[in-house]
Design a protein around this nucleic acid. Sequence first.
DNA 1: CGGTTGTTTTGAATCAGTCAAAACACCTGT
DNA 2: ACAGGTGTTTTGACTGATTCAAAACAACCG
Lengths: 160, 160
Amino acid sequence: MSTSDVTASATAPHGDGVLAHTLRDVGLKVTAPRLAALLALAEHPHADADTVFRAVQAELPTTSLQAVYGVLGAFADAGLVRRIEPAGSPALYERRVGDNHHHLVCRDCGRVEDVDCVVGESACLTPSSTHGFQVAEAEVTFWGRCPACAAAAAAVAEPT
Amino acid sequence: MSTSDVTASATAPHGDGVLAHTLRDVGLKVTAPRLAALLALAEHPHADADTVFRAVQAELPTTSLQAVYGVLGAFADAGLVRRIEPAGSPALYERRVGDNHHHLVCRDCGRVEDVDCVVGESACLTPSSTHGFQVAEAEVTFWGRCPACAAAAAAVAEPT
DNA sequence: CGGTTGTTTTGAATCAGTCAAAACACCTGT
DNA sequence: ACAGGTGTTTTGACTGATTCAAAACAACCG
């Protein structure tokens, strides 16, 4: 069985499920590639364009990579997904949005985990000096080593 | 007059000034492109590789872009400069290093300003949940609009 | 069910950065 | 002072991620 059965009705080519409503609610047309991309993002909470592409392609083999870029761009513009770009990685997309959470990134393998805001929204949004900037958002990235990479590094250092 | 007179002595082809010592102190050979790059970074506190390249080229026309990438990479490895990669910009290099400061980035024009750490080093380094990661560093980026872009945006919205 | 508008396909191009080998030059030791 | 070894720079090609543009297509409104 596939991950989602797209039931066609008389008026809605791609069904009327939760995902379809999610799209319509932000004024986007409901298409198969978009539904598949939403599903892919649900399964891969921090996916790059290529990961989404491959997941979408598994269900819809004719989908092009450019379509995925278009879909992800539309999602980001609509506020449906957040786009993050950790140094050294391609852009990642996540559905968890609007809650001011931050990220933990492994320097070795690039793995990303979510972290709730440390010091509360207001402190996060208040730099000591703004240089006259209108500050809209504070983005926090914690860099470190994930458990797997820490274990691998320890094994190399102490090969017994 | 040029920005720096490189005085050749019997033993040191590229002088023995402060910048040369900076390089020797971290075990790097002193070369003209490296001195020029250090100067360029002093004049442009958040410069991308191309900006450094053009500044170096002004003094040393034969310098290649790849040399600049090499120089900046060597500086970063030696801890002489910090490399930041704000989303949507190419990598930027800055000489201010080791003081855990953060950045204010203009969403419109990409301008970058330094900001001292908001809540103190320890709080910055302590996420609420680490998912088992060994956290080494917290990077904070404040996104907003610089004064110039805010004024430009206001002028468009209110064209009178 | 037809038309409009927005989406996807197709194909090409750009930008930032990396890789590799050969020419070169800094620095050490004599 | 000078020659050698090692690290740097040049030269040239190449990759990965993303964007641009035009034509074919499909969702949605009436």
